[in-house]
Simulated assay, not measured.
Amino acid sequence: MPAGLRQVVPGIPGTPLPRGILGASCTNVTDVTEDEIHQLNGVEWLSIGCCPARDWPDPCEDPQPGDPTQKEFCRPSTEHAAPITIYAGAECSAPGFSYAEARGQALASLALGEQHAIEAGFMRTKLSVEAVDTTPAEGPLNIAQGVAALEGCLAENYGGVGTLHIPVGVAALLGCCNVLHDDPVAGGLRTMAGNCAVIGAGYSYLNLGPGGIPAEPGAAWLYITGPLAIRRGPVDVIPDRSRASASVNIKNNDRRVLAERTVVVGTTCTICAVQVRASP
């Protein structure tokens, strides 16, 4: 075949990871309406289920050691979720890059990468800030032990189904010990206890533990939370079509277009963390 100029063809489309924070069955994702747009400033609510139900001894039976003498009452706590802004930008020389092309690039990049950005933002602003570290003094556990520690930690504080947050970089190890299975009834990946899992590239990208501490070499941080509720705002393109000319920097003739949206990721009750070895 004779040499010649390469032909320009459409880019290769991608598919978001199916087990990420937006695709996992344990995540409730809501696109807010215009009437709900104020929720993107952050939301708060009274916790449900963070105070455990307890058993009460039969008054007709003889008291046993350790029997409670009075019933306990619990005040629900106020919980909140803060906004996270995610974005993707496209930049190129304006003469060969129209506004429509730049806009399409930015939107496609955001659609493919928004899970990554949400996971990283959630780890940075919530998981690593509020988690209780269950890693023993001896150091990181193997992955099955780590999941067991997390499930025990959550079960002590919450009676419902929880959500594991697993970095993609160690996800394959979960199959070595049958820690997770695909549950056709409940949907998604589940543990033997019934907790579901989010497997996220954003968690691998940061790999931060409580206090923002990076994992040791050859290790990874895993988390468990209660269920997730994600409120997602509309995508804003900056500048919009009416101001397409404003996308060009007249100093260097480069065009820039930004696509961004705000999300609010909420969870409930205790957040637990553990460091595991990234090897079988």
Rank of each mutant, 00 (worst) to 15 (best):
M1D: 11
P2M: 06
A3G: 15
A3Y: 11
G4D: 05
G4E: 02
G4C: 05
L5M: 10
R6G: 11
Q7V: 14
V8M: 13
V9N: 05
I12E: 12
I12F: 09
I12Y: 05
P13A: 11
T15S: 10
T15N: 10
T27P: 04
N28W: 03
V29Y: 06
V29E: 09
V29P: 10
D31S: 13
E34I: 12
D35S: 15
E36S: 14
I37Q: 09
Q39V: 01
V43H: 01
E44L: 05
E44N: 13
S47W: 00
S47M: 07
S47I: 08
C50W: 00
C51Y: 09
C51D: 13
R54A: 12
R54C: 01
C60W: 07
D62K: 11
P63N: 03
Q64S: 13
P65N: 07
P68D: 09
C74V: 01
S77H: 07
P83R: 06
I84W: 01
T85A: 14
G89E: 13
S93G: 07
A94N: 08
A100L: 12
A100T: 14
E101N: 10
A102D: 04
S109N: 10
L112M: 05
G113C: 01
Q115D: 15
I118F: 11
E119W: 00
A120E: 12
R124C: 00
R124Y: 08
V129S: 02
A131V: 03
D133E: 12
T134H: 05
L141E: 07
N142S: 12
A149S: 12
L150F: 09
L150Y: 09
E151Y: 03
Y158K: 04
P167C: 10
G169K: 08
L173I: 06
L173G: 06
L173N: 03
N178K: 09
L180I: 11
H181Y: 15
V185I: 15
L189K: 13
T191P: 10
M192D: 13
A193N: 11
A193I: 09
A193L: 13
G194E: 09
N195H: 15
Y205D: 11
P210D: 02
P210H: 01
I213G: 01
I213F: 02
G218T: 07
W221N: 01
W221S: 00
I224Q: 08
T225F: 08
R232V: 12
V237Q: 05
P239M: 06
P239T: 02
P239D: 04
R241D: 15
S245M: 08
A246C: 02
V248C: 01
V248P: 01
N249K: 08
I250D: 07
N253E: 06
V257Y: 10
V257T: 06
L258M: 15
L258Q: 10
V263A: 14
V264P: 06
T267K: 04
A273M: 00
Q275H: 02
Q275S: 07
Q275R: 05
A278S: 15
